[in-house]
Write a protein that binds this DNA or RNA. Structure first.
Lengths: 256, 256
DNA sequence: AACAAATAACCAAAACTTCATCATTTTTAT
DNA sequence: ATAAAAATGATGAAGTTTTGGTTATTTGTT
């Protein structure tokens, strides 16, 4: 294997496992301990990881300040994003909501041949290098808090484009209040996305359950896929069953 | 297969795989290692990829250098931008065209109380910190070449908003062909900006005179203010006089 | 302090690169 | 159609980088 590739994979591996022993890396990558040492040294010098006696760990100090593509957000969000990205196929026209979780999908869809309609400014900027992605911006007032465009008449884009899948974010969901968010300006574009797209995916980490924010942009039952990092409680499972919502959670990793 | 086509495909292939060994490229493209080497060399010189031991990898630093280019932008553009910014007053609602010269205006208007309607992605991103600026994005397809949004039905924003001043850019102007630009997709939004806004400012550096590009988005006489770094030749002065265009150039700096 | 584990330093073998040369094929221009 | 130019493939020598093993040195634990 290419040295560069191996080093990248080591970084990913460590990020995923938080801390890893050198012996484990030797095992996994099938190279000598000596080589692993040198690779790790490189990553440490680069600032991405830090060395601990006998192994290597993620460098949490740079995690916050540094905007490295892999390091920049919680593992949960990446896991959710990865699950969601599995539903994206070449040729799709998808709507991608504002929010950090949906933003994380970029990493997993950046090589696909798709059209992305979005109001997520970070996504637009970071997606610039990937020319296979056709990006369509919703336009509208810049909302600094969410780094997104809030459109007054967002419906238009859903009228002119046939978007088959919508990947939505939320600041809190509950059985009573449905899917909520804190920015009233964005509510309109979100709710029309849900109404006009054929398949709705909601990406929320487990901490968002039973929370709710200022405005509701749709009912929970309007969702087709609820993608999260942990199986929610019995009530939600029941509700999902009744309303034909597919619950998607990561495979239980046995060797954890 | 055509050489250029192969090189493009190699680039795509590497972009997709992050890092690839030369042997793999030999395998995939069915040419000799010698040729792959030469192709790769070309791509490296072009700055898109970088060589690593045993293969190639995507050049992640290209993004940074891309931003550098912006930082070390020509003095002329800044001078022109400064002149233009003098016409912006608190309370204005301005349209800001895509392009690097108009982008430079940010520095000189960032503290004003205005609303900016724009399709200039760089401007939107860089203006984020200045909360006094109300930013409205035109939306549309992302045009990577110009880092802008190209709208099919851009007229809408000019209908709903009363924009009093438009600051336009161009890749070439001439008396015969008028104000031109190279991206057909953007032509519509540009020409409707010119038609709907009350005062039109055109920012062009002196090198753009007597040049012209693919499409014309308005006649020269539709311009109200022509802002540039050097007094253009007699023909243009004459034309400006006849059509009531105000020529704006920097004060003669004696120490030039 | 004593011991084991981890690390660093060094070295030779293996893998890879670079550069040059030359024959062959493909493309372009006349 | 023919000649010239460009691109490609094959080969080989010389130089680098990487790698795994060995051996000293350091570090952490008891």
């Amino acid at each position: 294997m290419l040295k560069t590739k191996r080093i990248n994979q080591i970084q990913d591996y460590v990020l995923e496992h938080e801390t890893v022993s050198l012996d484990e890396l030797v095992e996994v990558f099938g190279v000598s301990k000596n080589t692993i040492r040198r690779d790790v040294q490189m990553l440490v010098e680069q600032g991405d990881l830090k060395k601990v006696y006998g192994g290597v760990a993620v460098n949490h100090s740079t995690l916050i300040s540094f905007n490295d593509r892999k390091v920049r957000s919680q593992l949960e969000k990446q896991k959710i994003a990865k699950l969601a990205a599995d539903y994206v196929e070449d040729g799709d026209i998808i709507f991608l909501d504002s929010g950090t979780t949906t933003f994380e999908m970029l990493e997993f869809i950046k090589t696909k041949q798709i059209t992305v309609v979005t109001n997520n400014i970070d996504f637009i900027v970071e997606a610039m290098p990937y020319e296979n992605l056709n990006i369509f911006s919703a336009g509208g007032m810049v909302e600094r808090k969410t780094k997104s465009f809030a459109s007054f008449k967002g419906e238009d884009i859903f009228k002119t484009y046939n978007i088959n899948k919508a990947f939505m974010a939320s600041t809190g969901i509950s059985l009573r209040n449905g899917v909520t968010n804190s920015s009233p300006l964005e509510t309109e574009i979100k709710s029309s996305a849900v109404k006009k797209c054929s398949e709705i995916f909601l990406l929320v980490d487990s901490k968002k359950f039973d929370k709710y924010a200022l405005t509701t942009y749709c009912e929970l039952k309007e969702i087709d896929y609820l993608i999260t990092d942990q199986l929610p409680n019995e009530n939600y499972q029941q509700y999902a069953m009744e309303h034909d919502i597919k619950l998607v959670v990561p495979e239980e990793a046995p060797a954890n």
